[in-house]
Simulated scan of single mutants.
Amino acid sequence: MPTNPKQSEDRPEGDRIAKLLARAGVASRREIERMIADGRITLNDKPVETPATFLTTLEGVSVDGKPVAGPEPTQLYAFHKPTGLITAERDASGRATIYSALVNAMPKDAPRVMPIGRLDLNTEGLLLLTNDGGLKRQMELPANGIPRTYRARAFGDVTQEQLEALIEGVEIDGVRYGSIDANLERASGSGKNQWIEMTITEGKNREVRRVLEYLGLKVNRLIRTAYGPFRLGDLPRGRVARIRKGDLDRFRSSLKRDRK
């Protein structure tokens, strides 16, 4: 005798609205939950009250009064983030966010996009943007080991030998950082700024700054120059460029092969 004969009948059909909206490129699931709490998402002109709203389609769903279409083809953009911008949609302290710059930088026909990973307030350089929540999660996952390359200008003394030792990883204040490929671009002599290139694969919070500070250096400029195969190149500060579909497709195929 079944203990819960109505279990299959009572189980909601479809997916949570946050999952569908993330897949459609509206925002991350966490951000969508905040948008629901703020009353910005409606279903058939009525505010959605809970993220635990199950739907089979996005028909009738609007965000900020604008209807949401179904999932669009995956797109990826490179943005040269300037310093002084928060990587978030909004900031409780009223600081400028990347979306302040993206209003004029993104193509007029571009979909809503989300940042892949973050760059802190004082870090500049390559920030990838996508309309695909699945791709965002896949690229941020530390287990996928996607390399991120930075150029750091730091004041103080360091040797190439010290930097090469980072290939074995390092533990700082109880936090273990994995293998880091670091090289002096050029030595400027004792007590002067050094340019150092570092490639990491975990992307832990403030990882590059903390590791260099651990070596006795003071970082005064930090630029991300690459994320996976995608490079900043000569993209002007504050500008956006769409990644070509062929390049994106090849990258996604390599991710699938690596995970087998």
Rank of each mutant, 00 (worst) to 15 (best):
T87R: 12
R34E: 15
L126R: 01
D109C: 02
R118E: 08
P67M: 01
M106V: 06
E49M: 14
A27S: 15
P82T: 10
D91A: 14
Y77R: 01
L127M: 11
D109R: 10
N44T: 08
A52Y: 12
V26T: 00
F54Y: 15
R95F: 01
M114F: 04
P82N: 11
R16F: 08
M114A: 09
A96E: 14
D15I: 01
Q75R: 15
R40T: 02
D15E: 15
M114P: 06
Y99V: 05
A24D: 07
A101M: 10
T87S: 15
A69E: 14
F79Q: 05
I86N: 07
L85T: 07
K66A: 14
K46F: 09
K19W: 01
R95T: 04
A18Y: 09
D15W: 00
Y99L: 05
R11N: 12
E72N: 07
L126Y: 03
I32D: 03
V63A: 03
I116P: 05
K108R: 15
G60T: 02
R112I: 03
P51E: 12
L85D: 03
F79C: 03
E13L: 15
D120L: 08
L55P: 00
E124G: 05
V61L: 06
K108P: 02
L102H: 11
D38T: 03
P12Q: 11
P12R: 13
P115D: 06
G39D: 06
R112A: 11
V61E: 01
A92T: 14
M106L: 15
D45T: 12
M106T: 00
P115T: 08
K81R: 06
T87A: 10
A78E: 04
P12D: 04
